[in-house]
Write a protein that binds this DNA or RNA. Sequence first.
DNA 1: TATTGTTATACTCTATAACTATA
DNA 2: TATAGTTATAGAGTATAACAATA
Lengths: 149, 149
Amino acid sequence: MAEHAQYEELARQLSAVGAVKRELARMLPSDCPGGSAGVLTLLGRHGEMRMSRLAELLSVDMSVTSRHVAHVAERGWIERLPDPDDKRSRLLRLTPEGRAVIAELYRRTSRLMADRLGDWSDDEVGQLTALLGRLRESFDATHPTRAPA
Amino acid sequence: MAEHAQYEELARQLSAVGAVKRELARMLPSDCPGGSAGVLTLLGRHGEMRMSRLAELLSVDMSVTSRHVAHVAERGWIERLPDPDDKRSRLLRLTPEGRAVIAELYRRTSRLMADRLGDWSDDEVGQLTALLGRLRESFDATHPTRAPA
DNA sequence: TATTGTTATACTCTATAACTATA
DNA sequence: TATAGTTATAGAGTATAACAATA
Protein backbone atom coordinates (compact mmCIF):
# COMPACT_ATOMS: atom_id res chain seq x y z
CA MET A 1 0.00 0.00 0.00
CA ALA A 2 1.55 3.27 -1.12
CA GLU A 3 1.17 6.83 0.14
CA HIS A 4 -1.10 9.31 -1.52
CA ALA A 5 1.78 11.48 -2.79
CA GLN A 6 3.24 8.44 -4.50
CA TYR A 7 -0.02 7.86 -6.34
CA GLU A 8 -0.09 11.46 -7.47
CA GLU A 9 3.43 11.22 -8.79
CA LEU A 10 2.64 8.03 -10.66
CA ALA A 11 -0.46 9.60 -12.19
CA ARG A 12 1.63 12.55 -13.35
CA GLN A 13 4.25 10.32 -14.96
CA LEU A 14 1.56 8.31 -16.69
CA SER A 15 0.18 11.51 -18.20
CA ALA A 16 3.64 12.47 -19.36
CA VAL A 17 4.02 9.19 -21.21
CA GLY A 18 1.78 10.78 -23.81
CA ALA A 19 4.71 12.82 -25.08
CA VAL A 20 6.75 9.66 -25.63
CA LYS A 21 3.88 7.97 -27.42
CA ARG A 22 3.42 10.97 -29.68
CA GLU A 23 7.08 10.92 -30.63
CA LEU A 24 6.81 7.23 -31.48
CA ALA A 25 3.71 7.98 -33.54
CA ARG A 26 5.40 10.78 -35.47
CA MET A 27 7.83 8.44 -37.16
CA LEU A 28 5.14 6.09 -38.49
CA PRO A 29 4.52 5.94 -42.26
CA SER A 30 1.93 8.54 -43.25
CA ASP A 31 -0.72 5.99 -44.24
CA CYS A 32 -0.15 3.85 -41.17
CA PRO A 33 -1.32 5.68 -38.04
CA GLY A 34 -0.93 4.20 -34.58
CA GLY A 35 -4.17 2.28 -34.64
CA SER A 36 -3.17 0.49 -37.83
CA ALA A 37 0.28 -0.26 -36.49
CA GLY A 38 -1.28 -1.86 -33.42
CA VAL A 39 -3.47 -4.11 -35.55
CA LEU A 40 -0.57 -5.24 -37.71
CA THR A 41 1.92 -5.88 -34.94
CA LEU A 42 -0.55 -7.85 -32.84
CA LEU A 43 -1.52 -10.01 -35.81
CA GLY A 44 2.17 -10.51 -36.51
CA ARG A 45 2.83 -11.57 -32.97
CA HIS A 46 -0.24 -13.72 -32.22
CA GLY A 47 -1.26 -14.89 -35.67
CA GLU A 48 -4.72 -15.13 -37.22
CA MET A 49 -7.56 -14.16 -34.90
CA ARG A 50 -11.12 -12.80 -34.68
CA MET A 51 -12.17 -9.18 -34.18
CA SER A 52 -13.20 -9.72 -30.58
CA ARG A 53 -9.85 -11.23 -29.67
CA LEU A 54 -8.01 -8.37 -31.33
CA ALA A 55 -10.15 -5.79 -29.51
CA GLU A 56 -9.19 -7.44 -26.25
CA LEU A 57 -5.49 -7.36 -27.07
CA LEU A 58 -5.74 -3.72 -28.15
CA SER A 59 -7.67 -2.87 -24.98
CA VAL A 60 -10.23 -0.84 -26.90
CA ASP A 61 -13.89 -1.22 -27.81
CA MET A 62 -14.68 -3.48 -30.74
CA SER A 63 -16.20 -0.55 -32.63
CA VAL A 64 -12.79 1.11 -32.55
CA THR A 65 -11.10 -2.09 -33.59
CA SER A 66 -13.48 -2.36 -36.50
CA ARG A 67 -12.39 1.00 -37.83
CA HIS A 68 -8.69 0.29 -37.50
CA VAL A 69 -9.15 -3.08 -39.17
CA ALA A 70 -11.10 -1.54 -42.03
CA HIS A 71 -8.23 0.89 -42.60
CA VAL A 72 -5.58 -1.81 -42.94
CA ALA A 73 -7.88 -4.07 -44.97
CA GLU A 74 -8.51 -1.25 -47.48
CA ARG A 75 -4.77 -1.10 -48.06
CA GLY A 76 -4.49 -4.83 -48.61
CA TRP A 77 -2.40 -5.42 -45.50
CA ILE A 78 -4.82 -8.00 -44.07
CA GLU A 79 -7.56 -10.31 -45.32
CA ARG A 80 -10.91 -10.81 -43.59
CA LEU A 81 -11.87 -14.44 -44.01
CA PRO A 82 -15.13 -16.16 -43.03
CA ASP A 83 -14.91 -18.06 -39.76
CA PRO A 84 -15.98 -21.67 -40.40
CA ASP A 85 -17.06 -22.01 -36.76
CA ASP A 86 -19.27 -18.91 -36.57
CA LYS A 87 -20.76 -17.12 -39.55
CA ARG A 88 -21.05 -13.84 -37.61
CA SER A 89 -17.32 -13.77 -37.11
CA ARG A 90 -14.40 -12.94 -39.37
CA LEU A 91 -10.84 -14.17 -39.19
CA LEU A 92 -8.11 -11.61 -39.69
CA ARG A 93 -4.96 -12.70 -41.49
CA LEU A 94 -1.88 -10.75 -42.57
CA THR A 95 -1.02 -10.57 -46.25
CA PRO A 96 2.58 -10.50 -47.55
CA GLU A 97 2.13 -6.75 -48.05
CA GLY A 98 1.10 -6.46 -44.41
CA ARG A 99 4.21 -8.32 -43.31
CA ALA A 100 6.31 -5.91 -45.33
CA VAL A 101 4.72 -2.98 -43.49
CA ILE A 102 5.46 -4.67 -40.17
CA ALA A 103 9.10 -5.06 -41.17
CA GLU A 104 9.28 -1.36 -41.91
CA LEU A 105 7.62 -0.52 -38.59
CA TYR A 106 10.19 -2.66 -36.81
CA ARG A 107 13.04 -0.89 -38.56
CA ARG A 108 11.75 2.52 -37.56
CA THR A 109 10.97 1.53 -33.99
CA SER A 110 14.40 -0.01 -33.50
CA ARG A 111 16.15 3.03 -34.89
CA LEU A 112 14.28 5.49 -32.67
CA MET A 113 14.49 3.36 -29.54
CA ALA A 114 18.19 2.71 -30.05
CA ASP A 115 18.75 6.44 -30.38
CA ARG A 116 16.72 7.42 -27.34
CA LEU A 117 17.45 4.47 -25.06
CA GLY A 118 21.04 3.91 -26.06
CA ASP A 119 22.19 4.40 -22.48
CA TRP A 120 19.61 2.07 -20.95
CA SER A 121 20.70 -1.43 -19.97
CA ASP A 122 18.79 -4.52 -21.08
CA ASP A 123 17.79 -4.99 -17.49
CA GLU A 124 16.33 -1.51 -17.15
CA VAL A 125 14.28 -1.83 -20.33
CA GLY A 126 13.05 -5.19 -19.09
CA GLN A 127 12.12 -3.79 -15.69
CA LEU A 128 10.08 -0.97 -17.17
CA THR A 129 8.34 -3.35 -19.57
CA ALA A 130 7.52 -5.77 -16.77
CA LEU A 131 6.16 -3.06 -14.48
CA LEU A 132 3.99 -1.65 -17.26
CA GLY A 133 2.66 -5.13 -17.92
CA ARG A 134 1.80 -5.54 -14.29
CA LEU A 135 0.19 -2.10 -14.21
CA ARG A 136 -2.06 -3.03 -17.08
CA GLU A 137 -2.97 -6.27 -15.37
CA SER A 138 -3.82 -4.48 -12.14
CA PHE A 139 -6.10 -2.09 -14.00
CA ASP A 140 -7.68 -4.68 -16.23
CA ALA A 141 -11.42 -4.51 -15.62
CA THR A 142 -11.77 -8.20 -16.43
CA HIS A 143 -9.40 -9.07 -13.61
CA PRO A 144 -10.79 -11.95 -11.52
CA THR A 145 -10.95 -9.91 -8.31
CA ARG A 146 -13.18 -7.30 -9.96
CA ALA A 147 -15.17 -9.41 -12.41
CA PRO A 148 -15.74 -12.69 -10.55
CA ALA A 149 -18.01 -14.70 -12.81
CA MET B 1 21.86 -1.34 -25.45
CA ALA B 2 18.84 -3.63 -25.67
CA GLU B 3 17.78 -6.20 -28.23
CA HIS B 4 15.22 -5.45 -30.89
CA ALA B 5 12.58 -7.77 -29.39
CA GLN B 6 12.88 -5.92 -26.10
CA TYR B 7 12.15 -2.62 -27.85
CA GLU B 8 9.09 -4.11 -29.50
CA GLU B 9 7.77 -5.37 -26.20
CA LEU B 10 8.31 -1.99 -24.57
CA ALA B 11 6.52 -0.24 -27.43
CA ARG B 12 3.57 -2.59 -27.02
CA GLN B 13 3.34 -1.98 -23.29
CA LEU B 14 3.50 1.76 -23.83
CA SER B 15 0.56 1.50 -26.20
CA ALA B 16 -1.35 -0.51 -23.63
CA VAL B 17 -0.87 2.21 -21.03
CA GLY B 18 -3.63 4.01 -22.91
CA ALA B 19 -6.20 1.73 -21.32
CA VAL B 20 -4.97 2.65 -17.85
CA LYS B 21 -5.03 6.34 -18.68
CA ARG B 22 -8.57 6.05 -20.00
CA GLU B 23 -9.71 4.39 -16.82
CA LEU B 24 -8.17 7.19 -14.78
CA ALA B 25 -9.90 9.71 -17.04
CA ARG B 26 -13.30 8.05 -16.66
CA MET B 27 -13.52 8.88 -12.99
CA LEU B 28 -12.88 12.60 -13.46
CA PRO B 29 -15.70 15.07 -12.77
CA SER B 30 -17.73 15.63 -15.92
CA ASP B 31 -16.70 19.27 -16.37
CA CYS B 32 -13.04 18.55 -15.64
CA PRO B 33 -11.51 16.50 -18.47
CA GLY B 34 -7.93 15.29 -18.38
CA GLY B 35 -6.44 18.44 -19.84
CA SER B 36 -8.03 20.58 -17.16
CA ALA B 37 -6.93 18.22 -14.43
CA GLY B 38 -3.35 18.47 -15.68
CA VAL B 39 -3.43 22.26 -15.55
CA LEU B 40 -4.83 22.32 -12.02
CA THR B 41 -2.54 19.71 -10.51
CA LEU B 42 0.60 21.26 -12.01
CA LEU B 43 -0.36 24.70 -10.73
CA GLY B 44 -1.06 23.12 -7.36
CA ARG B 45 2.31 21.47 -7.28
CA HIS B 46 4.54 24.19 -8.74
CA GLY B 47 2.61 27.35 -7.90
CA GLU B 48 1.94 30.42 -10.03
CA MET B 49 3.54 30.32 -13.48
CA ARG B 50 3.34 31.57 -17.06
CA MET B 51 1.69 29.79 -20.00
CA SER B 52 4.99 28.83 -21.58
CA ARG B 53 6.23 27.19 -18.39
CA LEU B 54 2.98 25.26 -18.02
CA ALA B 55 3.15 24.07 -21.64
CA GLU B 56 6.61 22.74 -20.95
CA LEU B 57 5.46 20.86 -17.84
CA LEU B 58 2.47 19.44 -19.71
CA SER B 59 4.72 18.42 -22.62
CA VAL B 60 2.26 19.82 -25.17
CA ASP B 61 2.21 22.75 -27.56
CA MET B 62 1.33 26.13 -26.10
CA SER B 63 -1.76 26.32 -28.32
CA VAL B 64 -3.08 23.22 -26.57
CA THR B 65 -2.18 24.64 -23.19
CA SER B 66 -4.05 27.81 -24.07
CA ARG B 67 -7.24 25.88 -24.67
CA HIS B 68 -6.99 23.88 -21.46
CA VAL B 69 -6.25 27.02 -19.49
CA ALA B 70 -9.21 28.83 -21.04
CA HIS B 71 -11.44 25.96 -19.95
CA VAL B 72 -10.41 26.12 -16.30
CA ALA B 73 -10.41 29.94 -16.29
CA GLU B 74 -14.00 30.01 -17.58
CA ARG B 75 -15.01 27.94 -14.58
CA GLY B 76 -13.27 30.27 -12.16
CA TRP B 77 -10.69 27.70 -11.10
CA ILE B 78 -7.72 29.91 -12.00
CA GLU B 79 -7.01 33.61 -12.53
CA ARG B 80 -4.95 35.02 -15.40
CA LEU B 81 -3.01 37.98 -14.03
CA PRO B 82 -0.83 40.44 -15.94
CA ASP B 83 2.88 39.68 -15.67
CA PRO B 84 4.64 42.80 -14.36
CA ASP B 85 7.87 41.74 -16.07
CA ASP B 86 6.43 41.16 -19.57
CA LYS B 87 3.16 42.59 -20.83
CA ARG B 88 2.79 39.80 -23.42
CA SER B 89 2.71 37.22 -20.68
CA ARG B 90 0.08 36.15 -18.19
CA LEU B 91 0.54 34.62 -14.78
CA LEU B 92 -1.71 31.72 -13.89
CA ARG B 93 -2.85 31.39 -10.30
CA LEU B 94 -5.24 28.96 -8.63
CA THR B 95 -8.38 30.30 -6.98
CA PRO B 96 -9.89 28.78 -3.82
CA GLU B 97 -12.45 27.10 -6.08
CA GLY B 98 -9.62 25.61 -8.10
CA ARG B 99 -8.00 24.24 -4.96
CA ALA B 100 -11.28 22.63 -4.03
CA VAL B 101 -11.39 20.87 -7.41
CA ILE B 102 -7.83 19.65 -6.87
CA ALA B 103 -8.82 18.23 -3.50
CA GLU B 104 -11.63 16.33 -5.17
CA LEU B 105 -9.29 15.06 -7.89
CA TYR B 106 -6.90 13.83 -5.22
CA ARG B 107 -9.69 12.00 -3.41
CA ARG B 108 -10.78 10.22 -6.58
CA THR B 109 -7.25 9.38 -7.69
CA SER B 110 -6.35 7.98 -4.30
CA ARG B 111 -9.46 5.84 -4.16
CA LEU B 112 -8.95 4.34 -7.61
CA MET B 113 -5.22 3.81 -7.20
CA ALA B 114 -5.66 2.24 -3.78
CA ASP B 115 -8.23 -0.13 -5.26
CA ARG B 116 -6.16 -1.12 -8.27
CA LEU B 117 -2.66 -1.01 -6.77
CA GLY B 118 -3.54 -2.30 -3.33
CA ASP B 119 -1.13 -5.21 -3.72
CA TRP B 120 1.78 -3.09 -4.96
CA SER B 121 4.49 -2.16 -2.49
CA ASP B 122 5.71 1.40 -2.04
CA ASP B 123 8.95 0.34 -3.62
CA GLU B 124 7.30 -1.05 -6.73
CA VAL B 125 5.21 2.08 -7.26
CA GLY B 126 8.34 4.15 -6.79
CA GLN B 127 10.31 2.05 -9.26
CA LEU B 128 7.70 2.41 -11.96
CA THR B 129 7.42 6.14 -11.37
CA ALA B 130 11.18 6.57 -11.52
CA LEU B 131 11.53 4.54 -14.71
CA LEU B 132 8.74 6.50 -16.39
CA GLY B 133 10.45 9.71 -15.39
CA ARG B 134 13.69 8.53 -16.89
CA LEU B 135 11.88 7.41 -20.04
CA ARG B 136 10.42 10.85 -20.49
CA GLU B 137 13.83 12.40 -19.96
CA SER B 138 15.40 10.10 -22.54
CA PHE B 139 12.77 11.07 -25.10
CA ASP B 140 12.76 14.75 -24.29
CA ALA B 141 13.64 16.58 -27.49
CA THR B 142 15.26 19.37 -25.50
CA HIS B 143 17.68 16.92 -23.96
CA PRO B 144 21.25 18.29 -24.04
CA THR B 145 22.60 15.48 -26.24
CA ARG B 146 20.02 16.23 -28.93
CA ALA B 147 19.60 19.99 -28.62
CA PRO B 148 23.08 21.24 -27.74
CA ALA B 149 22.82 25.02 -27.71
C1' DT C 1 -32.53 -13.78 -26.52
C1' DA C 2 -27.67 -13.06 -26.72
C1' DT C 3 -23.55 -12.21 -29.37
C1' DT C 4 -20.41 -10.63 -33.42
C1' DG C 5 -19.39 -7.04 -35.98
C1' DT C 6 -20.41 -2.42 -38.49
C1' DT C 7 -21.70 2.34 -38.75
C1' DA C 8 -23.21 7.03 -37.17
C1' DT C 9 -22.37 10.42 -33.90
C1' DA C 10 -19.99 13.03 -30.53
C1' DC C 11 -16.11 14.16 -27.49
C1' DT C 12 -11.16 14.78 -26.13
C1' DC C 13 -6.61 15.62 -27.23
C1' DT C 14 -3.14 17.21 -30.29
C1' DA C 15 -0.30 19.98 -33.87
C1' DT C 16 0.19 23.53 -37.55
C1' DA C 17 -0.51 27.98 -39.21
C1' DA C 18 -2.15 32.65 -39.12
C1' DC C 19 -2.68 36.46 -36.19
C1' DT C 20 -2.20 40.20 -32.29
C1' DA C 21 0.46 42.45 -29.01
C1' DT C 22 4.71 43.30 -26.94
C1' DA C 23 9.92 42.78 -26.35
C1' DT D 1 12.84 40.82 -35.82
C1' DA D 2 11.64 37.68 -32.33
C1' DT D 3 8.65 35.97 -28.70
C1' DA D 4 4.09 35.14 -25.69
C1' DG D 5 -0.19 33.87 -26.28
C1' DT D 6 -4.83 33.07 -28.86
C1' DT D 7 -7.74 31.11 -32.29
C1' DA D 8 -9.15 28.46 -36.49
C1' DT D 9 -8.67 24.29 -38.64
C1' DA D 10 -7.74 19.54 -39.31
C1' DG D 11 -6.50 14.79 -37.89
C1' DA D 12 -6.23 10.79 -34.72
C1' DG D 13 -8.31 8.06 -31.07
C1' DT D 14 -12.03 6.67 -28.34
C1' DA D 15 -16.87 5.38 -26.47
C1' DT D 16 -21.97 4.92 -26.87
C1' DA D 17 -25.93 3.64 -29.23
C1' DA D 18 -28.50 1.74 -32.98
C1' DC D 19 -28.42 -1.74 -36.28
C1' DA D 20 -27.93 -6.34 -39.17
C1' DA D 21 -26.82 -11.03 -39.20
C1' DT D 22 -26.20 -15.17 -36.83
C1' DA D 23 -25.96 -18.29 -32.61
